[in-house]
Design a protein around this nucleic acid. Structure first.
Lengths: 131, 131
DNA sequence: TCATTTGTACTATTTGTAATAGTACAAGAA
DNA sequence: TTCTTGTACTATTACAAATAGTACAAATGA
C-alpha cells in the first residue's frame, strides 16, 4: 500500500487517503477480499496519527468501499452491482459540468475535450483487464 | 448576477463565487467585456463581507477570467486562445481520472460513462450557440 | 480462560483557513 | 476636488483538521 500523501496539500490528509484507496480499487490494484493494512500499521507507515487513518477508514466504509471486521482487519468490499440507476447517474452530473467549465477556461473546446475523454477511457480499459 | 451561495457549504464562500462566475462565463451567460457588479454591490446583494468578494475577484483575475479597472469596475476578460497546448491538456487529466473513479464506485461502467459524457456535451452545445 | 489484535470512542490541544469588522489608501473618472 | 472602486492591513471570531493520549469492545487464537 504505497500511498502518496502530501501533508502540505490543502485537501485533508484523511481525504487524500480516501481518494487514494478508491483510486487503487477502481484501477484494479486491489480486489474484493484483499486485506489492507490495519489502522495502526498504516499510521506508522505514513507517520500519521492513527485517528486520522481511522477517520479515513470510517468514511471508506460508509461509502461501501471497504469492510472492517473487528480483530481481523479491514478488507476491500465486494463491488456493489446497482447499475442502471438513474439517481446514481445524476450524481455524476456536477463532475461532468465541472469538467466542461474547467476545459473552457483552459481554452479547450468541446471536440478536443471529447478526444481527451475517450483517450483517458481507453487508457483505463487497457490497464484493467478484469472488468 | 444571481449567484446561489450557500454559507453552510463546506466549500468556502469565495470559492463558490469563483466557481459560479466561471460557470456563467463557460455557459455564455456572460461574454467578454460585460461588466459584473462591483465588490461593494455584490457584497450588499449577497450580504457577504466585501473582503470575501474581493478575494474571489482576485482569484478570478489570477485565472484570467475577469479584468479589473480601478474606479471603472470589473469586466469579463477576453477569452484566451491558446488551444493545442499539451501542457494545458494535462491539467484536465486528474479531473478525468477522478470522474472515472467516481463512476466506478457508483457502479457505472465505462460504456455507460461514455454515454453520460456525450449526453452532457450535447446539452452544453445546445445551450451555447456562440462558441 | 486469557492475552493479543484491531477497530472504535472520547477529551484536550494546536494549527491553519475562512469570514467578518473596521479602517485607510491609491488611482482613475466626472 | 469629489466620488467611485479596487486594494491593503490588522484584529477577531469560528470552525475543521490533525495530533496526542488514553481507554474500551469484540473477536481471534493459544
Amino acid at each position: 500500500m504505497h500511498l502518496n500523501i502530501d501533508p502540505r496539500s490543502s485537501t485533508p490528509v484523511y481525504q487524500q487517503i480516501v481518494d487514494a484507496v478508491k483510486n487503487a480499487v477502481a484501477r484494479g490494484l486491489y480486489n474484493p477480499g484483499d486485506k489492507i493494512p490495519t489502522v495502526r500499521e498504516m499510521a506508522s507507515e505514513l507517520t500519521i496519527n492513527p485517528n486520522t487513518i481511522a477517520k479515513a477508514y470510517q468514511k471508506l466504509e460508509q461509502e461501501g468501499v471497504i469492510v472492517t471486521m473487528r480483530s481481523r482487519g479491514t478488507f476491500i468490499a465486494e463491488r456493489k452491482a446497482s447499475p442502471g440507476n438513474e439517481a446514481l447517474k445524476k450524481l455524476l452530473k456536477p463532475s461532468l459540468d465541472r469538467l466542461r467549465v474547467d476545459a473552457f477556461h483552459l481554452g479547450i473546446g468541446p471536440d478536443e475535450l471529447k478526444t481527451l475523454f475517450l483517450e483517458t477511457m481507453e487508457e483505463w480499459e487497457k490497464e484493467r483487464r478484469d472488468i
